[in-house]
């Protein structure tokens, strides 16, 4: 039996191997280029359109808030692209027959696949924020990049990890890549927000436990922008609590990730 240290190092090496393989796969399939292009192009719209036809908001916080309110969609799109086929792809294309028969521990494969989906999604979010920060510096100057901007960035990364975890779980349960991608995409864009709205406005309870509810924190951290907005029917929408919202997203991230790894480990090729 190998010494513990060697055993652990080998597992970490295998995980890195899977991550590298996954990143190369995403790059080869042009997903990365597509997502990175979107991450640059989307925030540029908010810069070019006012430059040509209108005027910029009065403050950098307002500009950032408007611009970053769309990062959520990019997170969901990128998460679905990168994590959608992480596990289900291996079963659908039968490539798992080769992969799972290697001496590599299955846990290292699944963790590597998860991180392999998380890294490019993080990169997409980072590029979006970087582009936005360049725009802010260009319009309002260097001082306009406040601590709130970094806070928003970290919140976006936590939401990214929870979104990737959910899609990773779907990928470990479902058989087809397209079903996983679509289910992940529609859950985060439509299903959860609808449940959240129904709970908030029909049942009149704060849906703090819904995964997509704290996503509003990405823009709420810009304190200069009102925390409350008009909801459907003119009702006032409540804003999620910062600490509670982050805790909820982190809990979803870890629980869904563990569930995904466990289900994947138990799953067998037919």
């Amino acid at each position: 039996m190998k010494p513990f240290k060697e055993d652990v190092l080998e597992d970490l090496r295998n995980t890195c191997l899977t991550i590298t393989f996954e990143l190369k796969k995403h790059f080869r399939r042009k997903r990365m280029i597509l997502s990175f292009t979107l991450a640059v192009a989307l925030p540029l719209i908010f810069y070019i359109a006012p430059r040509l036809w209108g005027s910029f908001p009065d403050s950098a916080d307002q500009f950032a808030s408007i611009n970053l309110s769309f990062v959520e969609f990019l997170i969901v799109i990128s998460g679905s692209l990168f994590a959608g086929d992480a596990i289900s792809g291996e079963f659908e294309e039968k490539t798992g027959l080769l992969l799972f028969s290697t001496p590599q521990r299955h846990t290292t494969i699944f963790v590597g696949k998860y991180i392999g989906a998380l890294i490019p999604t993080f990169a997409v979010v980072s590029i979006y924020y970087l582009t936005t920060s360049f725009e802010i510096i260009g319009i309002y100057g260097m001082d306009a990049i406040t601590i709130d901007f970094f806070k928003s960035y970290f919140v976006a990364l936590i939401y990214t990890s929870s979104a990737v975890s959910l899609i990773f779980l779907f990928s470990s349960i479902l058989k087809k890549k397209i079903t996983t991608t679509l289910l992940g995409f529609f859950s985060l864009i439509m299903i959860f927000p609808i449940i959240s709205t129904v709970l908030e406005f029909v049942i009149e309870v704060e849906p703090w436990y819904i995964m997509t509810y704290p996503v509003g924190l990405i823009t709420d951290v810009f304190a200069a922008v009102p925390l409350f907005g008009a909801g459907p029917g003119g009702q006032v929408m409540s804003s999620p609590d910062f600490y509670e919202g982050i805790a909820v997203m982190a809990t979803y991230t870890l629980v869904l990730f563990f569930a995904g790894v466990l289900i994947s480990a138990k799953r067998r090729m037919e």
Partner: peptide, 27 residues
């Protein structure tokens, strides 16, 4: 100000450590 910057940063580090730590669980 809404929230503290160290909190989301600490949570991110925690997530990273737990995910990496999962690799060690089988060993």
């Amino acid at each position: 100000p809404v929230g503290d910057i160290y909190y989301p940063l600490a949570i991110l580090v925690l997530i990273f450590l737990v995910v990496i730590g999962t690799v060690l669980v089988p060993s």
